[in-house]
Amino acid sequence: MIPRHFQITISFLLAAILIAGIFIITLRHSEETKTQQGLAAGPQAPEAQGKEETIPVLVAYDEDMALRWRKTEAFMPDERDLRARAALRAVLAQYQQSPSPHPLANGADIKDVYLLNDDTLLVDTTAPFADGHPSSVVLEEMTLTSLIETLAANVPGITRVKFLVDGKERQTLAGHVDLMNFYQLSAVHELAKEFE
């Protein structure tokens, strides 16, 4: 015969284990939901700096292998480097829509931009921007051309652009298109014409 006080203790312990289990499952579920919401959101909207403007963005459309100018609203700061970042994020926001004209990986974003000598821009992208990019000559070119042409339209005076991935140089975006070079805007204009 098990003593009564022992039965009561065991019952309390079992109840405590059950409650703790339910609490842990609920907590885990809530964290997963938060993470998924964060990923699905794509590029995090920068803190609203500057004033809201209607800006031109060159958007890639995979279905017909074309690049087309569109207008979008974005908060555009006065500083040229922040303005460049806002313009680039405005392009990426187009690709995070559903359905997307040019799907990129969740988490594809611009980490930072660095303006050198007033005419050269270093664009530091997140790892998913390159790691999750579809591997294809045309699709990789369309991504870079849409970003660079949008920069040229919104930040006058930029003549060269180079992309980094998570702060480091990378040979190609996704196996094909060059990321080692500084892109000259004049050459990119030439390329953009092929996608008109």
Binding site: V137, E141, L144, Q171, T172, H176, V177, D178, M180, N181, Y183, A187, E190, L191, E194
Partner: peptide
């Protein structure tokens, strides 16, 4: 016939 920044052509 297209142009490309395709490594290692350059």
């Amino acid at each position: 016939d297209m142009k490309a920044f395709l490594r290692p052509l350059n």
